[in-house]
């Protein structure tokens, strides 16, 4: 499903923010990605989401080596990946329904199919009554659920979430994680980047630990009790 082999990444001519990253995610697995601030979590997610290219190493997604992909192949690959951004990145002038429908519209689905499907999904994430609401009128948790609905509307094989519970209270965060578990149960590979060590310990899934651009796999009991300001 996802394979990183000695991957490095830098922005422009700057220093490497990720170094020698190697891991393999099995289809249908559920992983947490954690580490102190500035460890490179967001950069790793950018590589996973095909938003950036690695500066070295090999990334294989869905059995295709990313650096060998032609530009025209990228959209089809990206449609297999759902991304939940930390800052939601919803389009404020579109309604919740239109935001969620966007990936289907872009993929060329018919309007009649789109709207029924989207309405059902919004109902599933608990926003059945806010289909016409614009993002600025929604709470942080509601926006996050719209963002999740948008990420999963195409039934992606890989779901990536960057600090999905960061903008909501503990109860809403838990409900969100149960939503991810539901998606994982139907075969979606899930990677959740989070600072919330309590959440990681509660769910007990495998953890990828990033520090200073290097990745290690840690067991639950090897995690720190909290991240200090200077990292780690």
């Amino acid at each position: 499903m996802v394979r990183f082999e000695n991957v490095g990444m830098r922005y422009g001519l700057g220093p490497e923010v990720l170094r020698d990253i190697s891991f393999h995610l099995q289809p249908g697995s559920f992983h947490f990605l954690t580490g102190p601030t500035g460890a490179g979590k967001s950069s790793l997610l950018k590589l996973l989401a095909l938003s950036h290219r690695p500066s070295r190493g090999l990334i294989t997604l869905f059995n295709k080596e990313v650096s060998s992909l032609a530009r025209d192949d990228l959209p089809a690959m990206r449609r297999k990946i759902g991304v939940v951004f930390q800052d939601f990145r919803l389009l404020d002038h579109l309604s919740a329904l239109e935001n969620v429908a966007l990936p289907l519209k872009i993929a060329g689905a018919k309007n009649s199919q789109i709207y029924q499907h989207v309405a059902e999904l919004l109902e599933w994430v608990g926003l059945g009554r806010q289909v016409d609401a614009k993002p600025p009128t929604l709470s942080g948790g509601e926006k996050q659920r719209v963002a999740i609905a948008r990420a999963v509307i195409n039934r992606p094989q890989l779901l990536i979430a960057d600090e999905p519970t960061g903008s909501m209270d503990a109860e809403m965060g838990l409900r969100l994680m149960y939503l991810f578990q539901e998606l994982n149960k139907i075969g979606t590979t899930v990677v959740v980047a989070t600072h919330d060590l309590g959440l990681i310990k509660r769910f007990g899934n495998p953890v990828m630990f990033l520090k200073d651009g290097m990745l290690t796999t840690r067991k639950q009991d090897e995690l720190p009790s909290q991240f200090s300001r200077d990292g780690g």
Binding site: P75, A76, R78, V83, P103
Partner: peptide, 14 residues
Amino acid sequence: AEVIQVLHLIGARD
């Protein structure tokens, strides 16, 4: 640029 990036990431062609 930000909206264009979102559109790209949800599968929009150039």
